[in-house]
Simulated assay, not measured.
Amino acid sequence: MDIRQLRYFVQIVESGSLTKASRQLFIAQSALSQRMALLEEEVGKTLLVRSVRGVVPTQNGDALYQHARFMLRQLDEAVLIARQEFSNVRGRVTVGLAPSTACMLGLPLLRTLKEKYPGILLNVFSALPGHLEEKARLGELDVAILFSKTAASEMTFEPLLDEEVFVILPGNTKLVAPRKKSLTLKETAALPMVLSTPSHALARRFMLELERAGLEPNVAAEIDSLLLVMRYVAEGEGATIQPMAATETLYPPDGWRCLPISNAPMTRANYIYALSPQKLSASASIVRAELKHITEQLIASGTWQGVRLTPTVAEAIGEDRQASQGLTPV
């Protein structure tokens, strides 16, 4: 299997027709059919079938398509960056990050760009997810990390990581026994909770879990500012529901306790968005690549806890490492 075969396969799936794909690829239809037959023989599965709608992928074909599209995008991005004269890359790039995400990625990204790409001026726009999505839909962000697959239809996106959501309290809290390593949903509902307003997806998700369990929340305050939420919680006024990255907002003397909800675990998917390839500048493409690389480094080093790379990202990183070491993935 080679890169050209994968490009041909992806083009056929997206065209829905061998005839259309052969025209777009400037290759004879018979040669294209032969290439696909060889690919199916190598995979050992039928990947494409003809139907009244044209050529459509099988279940195995669709799985290959999803991974191949991601890998080809990564490869194209790597080639683009490799061709750049880094010292000459210039431009302004606006990156949208939620407050907790900015706590983890903001400084490493700024430091990396200053060291490697001094000609790139980074504008970090940090806001609650709803505001970020609005800015993304208006085309005012070059790159963003958002929490929904439908946040901005005019931008491209790919999965980045999954965050676990915790009950967060100050380290010296008297609200939870020191021996506790996790809480049930009922125990969580009994705590005075400092939450974002219901317009925030994380707060809505928590309320929905309580409703499903027939529990009533004990809301001490609703605050749409992560910094103020964490300061209020640090003073011992209650607990909050946040990913672990939120603890980077400030550092109380006794640290933080981050307790999972044992019978209602919650995670939040993170997607990296970017302008369409036609609109994405070289400098913005570099920033997107660096964001992904920094994320992988922070997770691998244990600096960013309570998260995991999504499978496609982890697989792509593993294959990149094997390739750099002269190994063939199996």
Rank of each mutant, 00 (worst) to 15 (best):
M1H: 13
I3H: 10
Y8M: 07
Y8E: 11
Q11P: 01
G16S: 09
K20H: 11
R23P: 01
Q24C: 09
I27E: 11
A28K: 11
Q29I: 13
S30P: 05
A31Q: 14
L32G: 06
S33N: 15
Q34M: 12
E40D: 08
E41N: 10
L47A: 04
R53N: 13
G54E: 13
V56L: 14
V56Y: 00
Q59M: 10
Q59E: 15
G61C: 06
D62F: 09
H67A: 13
A68E: 02
Q74M: 11
L80H: 05
A82F: 02
R83H: 12
G91M: 06
A98S: 14
A98E: 10
T101Q: 12
L107I: 11
E115N: 07
I120W: 01
L128I: 12
H131L: 14
H131M: 13
R137F: 08
L141Q: 04
A144E: 04
L146Q: 03
S148Q: 12
T150K: 14
M155D: 01
M155H: 06
F157W: 13
E158W: 06
P159E: 01
E164R: 05
V167Q: 01
P170F: 07
T173K: 03
K174C: 02
L175H: 01
L175D: 04
V176D: 02
V176N: 02
P178S: 10
R179N: 13
K180F: 04
L183A: 05
T188V: 12
A189D: 01
V194A: 05
S196P: 01
H200D: 15
A201R: 14
L202N: 10
L202F: 05
R205Y: 11
L210M: 10
A213P: 02
G214P: 11
G214W: 07
L215T: 04
L215K: 00
L215D: 05
V219M: 10
V219H: 10
A220V: 04
E222D: 05
D224T: 07
V229A: 00
R231N: 10
V233G: 02
G236V: 06
E237H: 15
M244E: 14
A245C: 06
A245M: 11
A246F: 04
A246V: 03
P253F: 05
Y271F: 15
P277G: 07
K279H: 13
S285D: 02
I286Q: 00
V287R: 01
I294H: 01
T295N: 10
T295S: 14
E296L: 08
S301K: 11
T303I: 12
W304P: 00
G306S: 09
G306M: 08
P311T: 09
T312I: 15
E315W: 06
R321A: 14
Q322R: 12
G326R: 11
V330H: 11
V330Y: 08
